[in-house]
Computed example of a mutant assay.
Amino acid sequence: MYHQIGEPGPRGTPYRGLTVHPRDFRRQMLWLRRLGYRGLSMARLGPYLRGEKQGKVVGITFDDGYANVLENAVPVLEECGFLATNYFVVRQLGGSNVWDADEGVPPSPLMDVAGLRAWAAAGHEVGSHTLNHPDLSRISPELAVNEIRDSREALEQIAGAPVRAFCYPYGHFTAALADVTREAGYDSATTTARGLARLDDDPYALPRVAVMRSTHLLRFLQKCLTRLEDGKRRRDERRPIVAPPGVA
């Protein structure tokens, strides 16, 4: 799980850790490739999550659709032969991360329609992060349905291709929201619950590994490729997971 790929803000900037330097991102991707892993979008990852295929694969996702991902991540992904999924906020295409404003986070530009289409033209997957990036667990069921369903329909018209991947804003979801996501026609939905995906996971409540500015290479490989992180997840599953506000 990535957000921005760019130059991190000055020390003290809120959520500075969500921006990974392009140099570090490239190093991470190159090491995955050297170790024999393939980076895949959620659509391509699906058969592995369902047990239909086996192999050394890693799902790569980006939340929010930041413009610096198109500029800094796409060339690296192309160099490595990897694919990824980006979850877009429909009504902020060409805008910024306005949902972070109350946290004091500086605005960062998001891809516009042309950027989204360039992302898709490069072979990467367009996913939905709702219409407006609300906390779906705190709005009415009717509004939540609209955010989930209508964002998919809008993105399909813009991208000219099916949209089958969804990401819950802030990682917050309920069983009812997972049902709505399934009924809206998505094939998968990701959360901010930490850990490696397993074959017995609900495809509409998938965990991810957060990669931060401070995630050094050894820790990156440990988090993504070893069962140490899965062991942590198993311990965490004994208590409720609460996603930090403002993240994702």
Score class of each variant (00 low, 15 high):
2 Y>A: 12
4 Q>G: 14
11 R>M: 11
14 P>K: 07
15 Y>P: 01
19 T>K: 12
21 H>G: 03
24 D>H: 08
26 R>D: 14
26 R>C: 15
27 R>D: 07
28 Q>N: 11
29 M>G: 07
35 L>M: 10
35 L>I: 02
36 G>C: 09
38 R>D: 15
42 M>K: 04
43 A>P: 01
43 A>L: 08
43 A>F: 03
43 A>K: 06
45 L>F: 15
45 L>S: 14
48 Y>Q: 11
49 L>H: 11
50 R>T: 15
52 E>S: 15
53 K>Y: 13
55 G>Q: 14
57 V>S: 14
59 G>V: 01
60 I>Q: 08
61 T>C: 07
62 F>R: 07
65 G>A: 10
66 Y>F: 15
66 Y>P: 09
66 Y>D: 05
67 A>G: 03
67 A>M: 10
73 A>Q: 05
74 V>Y: 04
75 P>C: 10
77 L>M: 11
77 L>N: 13
78 E>M: 12
81 G>P: 07
82 F>A: 12
84 A>Q: 07
88 F>N: 05
89 V>E: 11
92 Q>F: 13
94 G>S: 15
94 G>R: 15
97 N>V: 08
98 V>P: 00
98 V>E: 11
101 A>S: 14
102 D>K: 08
104 G>Q: 10
107 P>C: 08
107 P>F: 03
107 P>T: 09
111 M>G: 12
112 D>I: 04
114 A>Y: 04
116 L>D: 03
117 R>G: 09
119 W>R: 09
120 A>L: 04
120 A>G: 05
121 A>I: 07
124 H>E: 07
130 T>N: 10
132 N>K: 08
134 P>C: 13
135 D>E: 14
135 D>H: 09
136 L>F: 04
137 S>P: 00
137 S>F: 00
139 I>N: 00
140 S>C: 02
140 S>D: 10
144 A>K: 00
146 N>D: 08
148 I>K: 01
150 D>G: 00
150 D>Y: 00
152 R>E: 04
153 E>I: 06
154 A>I: 01
156 E>F: 01
156 E>V: 01
157 Q>I: 01
158 I>A: 05
167 C>Y: 04
167 C>P: 02
169 P>T: 02
172 H>L: 13
173 F>N: 15
174 T>S: 15
175 A>I: 04
178 A>L: 13
180 V>H: 00
183 E>S: 13
184 A>D: 09
185 G>F: 02
186 Y>T: 02
190 T>D: 01
191 T>N: 04
192 T>D: 07
194 R>N: 11
194 R>D: 07
198 R>V: 13
199 L>T: 11
200 D>F: 09
205 A>L: 13
206 L>I: 07
207 P>K: 01
209 V>K: 05
209 V>L: 09
213 R>V: 01
214 S>V: 05
216 H>S: 04
217 L>N: 10
220 F>W: 14
220 F>Q: 12
222 Q>C: 08
223 K>V: 00
224 C>S: 06
224 C>Q: 06
226 T>E: 02
227 R>V: 06
229 E>I: 00
229 E>P: 00
230 D>F: 00
231 G>H: 05
233 R>M: 08
234 R>K: 07
237 E>K: 03
240 P>L: 10
245 P>D: 14
246 G>N: 12
247 V>R: 15
